[in-house]
Simulated scan of single mutants.
Amino acid sequence: MKRLFKYTISIVIAAVIAVSLWLYYPTYQIQQMKEEAAPTSAQAALSYVDYFSNVDKESLNHLAIGDSIIAGFGSENEESFVDYFSRRLEEQTGKTVVLENEGILGINSTNLNTLVQTGKFDEQIKRADLITINVGGNDILETLYQGDYKNVVANFDSMRETFIKNLTAMTDRIKKENPSATIVFLEMYNPLKPSHDLYKVADQLLPKWNVKIYEVAHKYNHSIVLETTKVINGHHLQYLAPDGVHPNALGYEALSKQMLEQLKKKPFVEAV
């Protein structure tokens, strides 16, 4: 009987540890990658904004590709965070920033990757100093529309695998066309209210999605991840449009401030 009890306790403990690792290890991984990217005293002299300020060009080209977040859907003035950010970068660098916003409503990662691979953005990529990418939300929404949240949970790993293959493939293509371009990826955020039945589920799954974005950024020189979850979350619902999913004008402006803050702090160094 004692042996059976000990065996049962061991199984329970192992299950708890496994679940904890599944839920919380991605958050730990993200934090570790952020800390690895923190500047040393020797690196801190040159940030991304410093680099853009010093580059021998009168103007900077900013290409933004992706979904409705890039397009600025939900904003009362029809401007995305990339519009706000480009103006802020102009002020910081004293250079003209030419924005090419190629956001497409409803596009998923597979379709965006197809456009990148077939060369739709090649000329824009080649002349870009900065490329901002946001995609993946519609991968999840399409699965949700095919059933319910249980369908999303059941298919989460396969969705994530498809997404990361697409994101890696398009980043490979972009870096092949323009190795020196700085790329900014966006985290996926949780727009649900803390009182929502699915808030905790989404909050547990998102780090498992976002850690893969950080892993892609970690592979390439001059690639960073915009910490959207610092801006849009259950404690900052004032940044959401009436649809409860997309940012409003205040939200997009807050994202632009976060993007500039990160580019002012992050050292312009080669990836590890």
Rank of each mutant, 00 (worst) to 15 (best):
K2F: 09
F5E: 08
I9F: 02
I9M: 09
I13L: 10
I13F: 10
V16L: 15
S20G: 15
S20L: 13
L21M: 09
W22N: 09
Y25A: 06
Y25V: 15
Q29A: 13
I30W: 03
Q31Y: 13
Q32E: 15
Q32T: 15
M33G: 03
K34M: 14
E35I: 06
E36H: 15
A37C: 04
A38T: 14
A38Q: 15
A38H: 09
Q43H: 09
Q43C: 03
S47Q: 14
F52R: 01
K57A: 08
E58V: 02
H62S: 01
I65Q: 04
G66L: 08
I69R: 00
I70K: 00
G72P: 02
G74A: 08
G74T: 05
S75N: 03
S75A: 01
E78I: 12
Y84I: 00
S86D: 08
S86H: 11
R88G: 02
T96K: 14
L99Y: 06
E100T: 14
E102D: 08
G103H: 01
L105K: 06
G106C: 11
I107M: 04
N108M: 05
S109Y: 00
T110H: 08
D122M: 03
Q124C: 02
I131C: 02
N134C: 08
V135W: 09
G137H: 13
E142C: 04
T143M: 13
T143N: 13
Q146K: 10
G147W: 04
N151K: 14
S158C: 04
R160D: 00
E161P: 01
F163D: 10
K165W: 05
N166Q: 11
A169R: 12
A169P: 05
M170D: 05
M170N: 05
T171G: 03
I174P: 01
E177C: 08
N178S: 06
P179Y: 06
P179G: 05
I183H: 00
I183M: 00
I183G: 00
I183T: 09
V184K: 01
F185G: 00
F185K: 00
Y189M: 05
Y189S: 02
P194M: 12
S195F: 09
A202C: 10
L205R: 02
E215A: 15
V216A: 07
K219T: 15
H222T: 08
V225R: 04
L226H: 02
E227Q: 13
E227M: 14
N233Y: 06
N233A: 06
G234A: 05
G234H: 04
H236G: 02
Y239E: 02
L240P: 01
A241E: 01
A241L: 07
D243F: 02
D243A: 02
H246D: 07
A249T: 14
A249K: 04
Y252L: 05
Y252F: 14
E253C: 06
Q258V: 00
M259V: 03
Q262M: 10
Q262H: 10
K264N: 11
K264F: 07
K265V: 05
K265M: 11
P267F: 14
F268E: 10
V272D: 14
